[in-house]
Simulated assay, not measured.
Amino acid sequence: MADEKPEKLAPIKLIRDTWVGEERIKADGTVINMPAKDARRLIEAGVAERADPLPGE
C-alpha cells in the first residue's frame, strides 16, 4: 500500500462561471476550495482569484 498524501486544496473566488466536469460552478462571490493545481490553472486563465488571507490576517 503506497503512502498517498491528500491533495492540497487552495481557496479561490471565481470571477466568471466555470465547469468542473459536468457541474457548473457559478461565480457568486463564494470562496471555494479546489485542488491546488486546478486552482492555479483557473487563476492563470483569469477565471478566479486567490482567496487566502494576507499575512497577519
Rank of each mutant, 00 (worst) to 15 (best):
residue 48 A to Y: 02
residue 9 L to E: 02
residue 10 A to I: 08
residue 11 P to L: 07
residue 49 E to Y: 05
residue 36 A to N: 04
residue 41 R to Q: 12
residue 30 T to H: 07
residue 44 E to S: 04
residue 42 L to A: 10
residue 28 D to G: 07
residue 25 I to H: 01
residue 30 T to M: 04
residue 8 K to S: 10
residue 15 I to H: 04
residue 14 L to D: 02
residue 9 L to T: 03
residue 17 D to F: 14
residue 18 T to V: 14
residue 35 P to W: 15
residue 23 E to G: 07
residue 46 G to P: 02
residue 27 A to H: 08
residue 14 L to P: 01
residue 12 I to P: 00
residue 32 I to E: 02
residue 32 I to H: 04
residue 22 E to P: 11
residue 9 L to S: 03
residue 50 R to D: 10
residue 37 K to N: 09
residue 33 N to S: 06
residue 47 V to M: 12
residue 32 I to G: 00
residue 18 T to L: 04
residue 40 R to I: 10
residue 21 G to Y: 03
residue 28 D to P: 06
residue 12 I to H: 00
residue 43 I to M: 13
residue 39 A to L: 05
residue 35 P to R: 15
residue 40 R to M: 12
residue 36 A to S: 09
residue 40 R to S: 14
residue 11 P to E: 05
residue 50 R to S: 12
residue 17 D to G: 12
residue 35 P to Y: 08
residue 14 L to E: 00
residue 18 T to A: 09
residue 30 T to K: 09
residue 24 R to E: 12
residue 10 A to V: 10
residue 7 E to K: 13
residue 38 D to Q: 15
residue 32 I to M: 04
residue 7 E to P: 05
residue 32 I to Q: 00
residue 23 E to N: 09
residue 29 G to F: 07
residue 42 L to K: 06
residue 43 I to N: 12
residue 25 I to Y: 03
residue 22 E to H: 14
residue 7 E to N: 08
residue 50 R to L: 11
residue 9 L to P: 02
residue 49 E to S: 10
residue 8 K to Q: 13
residue 47 V to Y: 10
residue 47 V to F: 13
residue 10 A to G: 06
residue 36 A to P: 06
residue 21 G to D: 07
residue 38 D to H: 13
residue 33 N to C: 15
residue 43 I to A: 11
residue 26 K to H: 14
residue 11 P to S: 06
residue 15 I to K: 02
residue 22 E to R: 11
residue 13 K to Y: 01
residue 10 A to H: 12
residue 16 R to P: 05
residue 29 G to V: 01
residue 40 R to D: 13
residue 40 R to E: 08
residue 22 E to I: 13
residue 38 D to F: 15
residue 28 D to T: 08
residue 33 N to P: 09
residue 26 K to E: 14
residue 46 G to F: 03
residue 32 I to T: 01
residue 12 I to W: 01
residue 10 A to F: 06
residue 49 E to K: 11
residue 29 G to T: 04
residue 30 T to E: 05
residue 47 V to P: 08
residue 17 D to I: 12
residue 43 I to S: 11
residue 29 G to A: 09
residue 47 V to H: 15
residue 42 L to F: 10
residue 28 D to Q: 09
residue 28 D to C: 06
residue 13 K to N: 01
residue 12 I to D: 00
residue 25 I to R: 00
residue 31 V to I: 04
residue 33 N to M: 14
residue 16 R to L: 08
residue 31 V to E: 03
residue 38 D to E: 14
residue 13 K to Q: 02
residue 22 E to S: 11
residue 40 R to P: 08
residue 37 K to M: 11
residue 11 P to T: 01
residue 12 I to V: 03
residue 12 I to R: 01
